[in-house]
Amino acid sequence: MSHTVGHEPILGKFPGLEWDEEAGALVVPAAQAAKIATWLRDNDAFLLDYCSNVTGVDYLEREIKEKVTNEAGKTETVIRIEPSRMDIVYHLYSMQKQTGPLVLKQRTNREQPEVESLTPVWRSCELQEREVYDLFGVNFMGHPDQRRILMWDEFEGHPMRKDYTEPFDYEWEPTPHDEVLERHQRGKVIV
């Protein structure tokens, strides 16, 4: 098996770098992504020369119910609101050392998402960051050629966002299948 890259030595090098235990990812502070990525690529201890996968994850604002013990020693359910955010995830490997993966995440807001492009560091981000721009609407600063890639240029909206709603389909025509689809859209639980 390939060896995973330890994250402890990286944490001390850059202030503001955080380790997200649940996701198993390094969360990069704003506007430092390119600097850290270059360091990871060129440092002899890591040599992460291969960026495999780039993608976005859209988190809506959500309520989390938690059980908390209060001062009186009783447990009670507290509703915590987790703010919405947008994650850009990079999976890094080293071809020279045959190690990996190290997961890098850039966090940004949902309203005006803007992160640093890592295309200057790894060319493999070029098409994938274009895809994230197209489907999530994230603005990559420093991307050499940021255009829509899968949807056409005149398309409005970003379909992979969780709150995206389909526009009216002008090519729609009735089929015997419509009733089935409608029933499914009425929100059935999928087994």
């Binding site: 495999s52 996968n53 493999s124 070029e126 098409l127 994938q128």
Partner: peptide
């Protein structure tokens, strides 16, 4: 390299499902 990236959130559906397509990235 064909990769699948899944994020589960405790429901029967994946929260995020991503395919790393080798054909697309080789076109770079």
């Amino acid at each position: 390299e064909l990769g699948f990236y899944l994020i589960a959130d405790g429901t029967p559906k994946p929260y995020r499902y991503r395919v790393r397509p080798p054909s697309l990235i080789n076109l770079t």
